[in-house]
């Protein structure tokens, strides 16, 4: 029997490492495995995905996983993101593990045929690691649900994190974080649907340049990308303190600040990436940070 797992995260959260940890852990348990990431042309904060397959028999499938048995979603803002579309193709009877503080019932109301498990990994990671790096946490959640043994899993966490060059101290903290997550959940018996092995051809829509999609003569059209969903924290201006000195405006790398007709600086939350340069540079400490998605 084969399990196909797809991880969705944002660049920098550790999706690729999670897929490696899970693959390695399953291998330690005696399975064959594959793991690999997909990179778009984007960076820290942008949606990324990574895949793990493991099986007690040979694995003859190759390529991206379009019909996963389990998806691991590292950031609940990805659910609304059409670039990520994390639940796409999730098999009937499959399972989605979502890092969120929202109740599970609200996440995927129209998929009664799949199990949704929620866990606040970001909260746990901030507490235990001091930063929102989630690779070992999401790998732990998926490994537990998939029934990977604890010993094999913890060895994989330590091995993989050492290999990416983490200090012994961080490896130890990550192992503790992973153990805590592993302990929170219970294994599931998944009975996912078998899919017909013959693939159907999908007709592609005809795209006419300039109609429905931007063409090469378009300029200055990147705002539709909505990089605002890269943020973990949002900057908030206290206008009672702000003296309109424009320093934050000058140093925003994103042009995500503009000056209104009233001479006041405004933040475009659709695209502000939350780098917090404005907060650091404001001489009057008029900018504070507020957590997105229930973070403090």
């Amino acid at each position: 029997m084969m399990l196909r797992v797809r991880f969705h995260g944002r660049g920098g959260q550790g999706a690729k490492t999670a897929s490696r940890i899970l693959g390695d852990a399953a291998f330690n348990d005696g399975f064959n495995d594959q793991d690999f990431p997909i990179y778009g042309a984007e960076r820290r904060g942008a949606p990324v995905a990574a895949f793990t397959r493991f099986s007690d028999g040979d694995i003859t499938e190759r390529g991206f996983i379009f019909s996963p048995d389990i998806v691991g979603v590292m950031d609940d803002s990805l659910i609304e993101d059409p670039l990520a579309n994390p639940f796409a193709g999730l098999r009937k009877g499959g399972c989605a593990v979502v890092n969120t503080t929202k109740p599970s019932g609200t996440l995927l109301p129209d998929r009664k045929d799949a199990k949704i498990i929620t866990i606040d990994l970001t909260g746990m990671a901030l507490k235990m690691l001091g930063k929102p790096i989630l690779s070992s946490g999401i790998a732990a959640a998926v490994a537990r649900v998939a029934g990977v043994s604890e010993g094999s899993f913890l060895k994989a966490v330590a091995d993989e994190l050492r290999e990416v060059g983490l200090s012994e101290e961080m490896v130890k903290k990550n192992v503790e974080f992973a153990m805590a997550v592993y302990g929170e959940l219970a294994p599931l018996t998944l009975r996912t649907e078998e899919l017909p092995s013959k693939l159907e051809l999908v007709p592609l829509a005809v795209v006419v340049s300039g109609e429905g999609m931007e063409d090469v003569t378009q300029t200055g059209n990147s705002a539709v990308r909505h990089t605002g969903n890269w943020r973990t924290y949002r900057p908030v201006i206290d206008y009672r303190r702000c003296t309109d000195c424009m320093i934050c405006y000058a140093y925003c790398p994103e042009s995500a600040m503009s000056v209104g007709e009233d001479g006041r600086v405004r933040i475009d939350y659709e695209n502000c990436k939350g780098c917090m340069i404005c907060l650091t540079e404001c001489p009057l400490k008029a900018i504070s940070q507020s957590g997105e998605r229930g973070l403090q």
């Binding site: 960076r43 990147s222 990308r225 990089t227 790398p253």
Partner: peptide
């Protein structure tokens, strides 16, 4: 420069 570029958050190059 319109918002929504794909450089890392805080990139000095795009600034």
């Amino acid at each position: 420069l319109t918002p929504g570029n794909t450089m890392c958050a805080g990139c000095g190059g795009i600034l």
